[in-house]
């Protein structure tokens, strides 16, 4: 299972890359593996305000659908259109080309609630 040290994580298996006031979000390698072959992704609209822990995207396999929760509150400023047409990117490159969306962070304090790689790693063991 691949884990990147410089990312933050959530209990619900999202990863977060904080870039100044922006947070890039995707699902972890562990999550994509559990979901198996991803066939469809639903993304939020750009400009939408999301609250921390609010379902904000959906990742679907042939026989299941999983809500993806916003790890931080803020405004959606970017979505990865590529995964709409090529959902397999989320399986292949969960931390790179398979990211889902980016949030403009509205409350930086919330970042402290995210998990570091070691803690997340313990969670999935």
């Amino acid at each position: 299972m691949r884990l990147l040290r410089d990312l933050k994580y959530t209990k619900t298996h999202e990863w977060v890359k904080v870039e100044k006031n922006k947070a890039r979000v995707g699902i972890t390698d562990f999550a994509q593996h559990e979901i198996t072959d991803i066939v469809h992704v639903e993304l939020p609209e750009i400009g939408k305000q999301v609250k921390k822990d609010q379902p904000s995207a959906v990742v679907e396999s042939v026989k299941s659908a999983f809500d993806i929760y916003a790890p931080l509150s803020g405004r959606i400023v970017e979505v990865n259109d590529n995964v709409l047409n090529n959902p397999e990117l989320v399986n292949q490159f969960p931390y790179e080309d398979g990211y889902l969306f980016a949030i403009e962070i509205s409350d930086e304090k919330e970042i402290d609630s995210l998990l570091d790689a070691d803690t997340y790693n313990m969670l999935i063991q």
Partner: peptide
């Protein structure tokens, strides 16, 4: 196909 839209998978959603 596109079954993850349906009730037997997504239930109330």
């Amino acid at each position: 196909t596109l079954q993850s839209r349906e009730q037997h998978i997504r239930r109330s959603k």
